[in-house]
Design a protein around this nucleic acid. Structure first.
Lengths: 146, 146
DNA sequence: CTCGTTGCAAAGAGTTTGCAGGCAA
DNA sequence: TTGCCTGCAAACTCTTTGCAACGAG
């Protein structure tokens, strides 16, 4: 666990101002163990800080994500997408051009197994990769060299 | 690849009617390799089937998902959720009670490695598990026994 | 003092719903 | 023929934006 001073410094390093609201949201998320949604964060904090606005929660979350102090889990980077190919495969998302490529990863058994303890049953696994696809990777290198 | 007759039978087995629109959307998704979003499906099909409505695309996708003929990828089951704990971990989503549990999975290196070919660079991986948590698992068993 | 940030309300994007007419079984 | 399904438009939910006032640096 990092200290408050570090977190404040991180915000400053990114050029963000350190406001009361931002510290409140950050503190809330670091104490919470239930991976709250925006509405929950808003409602819970609203009790103690009645003037806090929903837009500020959104702004703050975006800022906290950019500084790496908070993570957005399970949410898509974009809108819903559909796949009509039902053979088992994972997906690779190019973070630059947005392309989605299919990827066959074998040997997922041990992952399932690792999750299957504490009385849990696991029947599905989502394995997504993010990075640069071949084309964007090449482009990136070209830009660096020039 | 399954045959059309099988797919039609699947729809019937689930008690759904086999309509022209449903077959058109299914065929489109099975031919597409780009994991299209709803809007893309709609726009592409609209050219050939001008009376097709957006609501029908949504209805059809929901129905196709239920029958397992099509998959919704990368999209969350629900709204965005946030995590203020930044130590490396994966998530387990209970499909019954909605709870999200943290899960530490070691040895993800070989997964990254497996994706890193064809000139791709991979800098992030999302590994989510879905199933029943301990509590819901116990409850399930109790119901079966009674 | 300055400019990034807040709070509020209104707008936007994506998705869902209500309903009358249409069509698969 | 029957009831599920379609198309259309309106409603809804979640998120973003515009703007005047505020406050951190």
């Amino acid at each position: 666990m990092r200290h408050l001073a570090d977190q404040i410094q991180t915000m400053k390093d990114f050029g963000f101002k350190v406001t009361h609201q931002r510290l409140v949201v950050l503190d809330y998320l670091q104490r919470s163990k239930e991976h709250p949604c925006v509405e929950k964060i808003y409602n819970d904090l609203k009790e103690r800080y009645p003037t806090l606005s929903l837009a500020t929660i959104y702004n703050t979350l975006e800022m906290l994500e950019k500084t790496g102090l908070v993570k957005d889990i399970g949410a898509p980077e974009e809108r819903r997408r559909f796949d009509g190919i039902m053979t088992e495969h994972s997906h690779f998302f190019c973070t630059k051009c947005g392309k989605i490529e299919d990827l066959v990863i074998s040997d997922k058994g041990h992952l399932m197994e690792a999750a299957r303890n504490n009385g849990r049953s696991v029947d599905r696994l989502r394995l997504d990769f993010f990075g640069l696809c071949k084309d964007c990777q090449v482009e990136e290198k070209t830009v660096q060299e020039s």
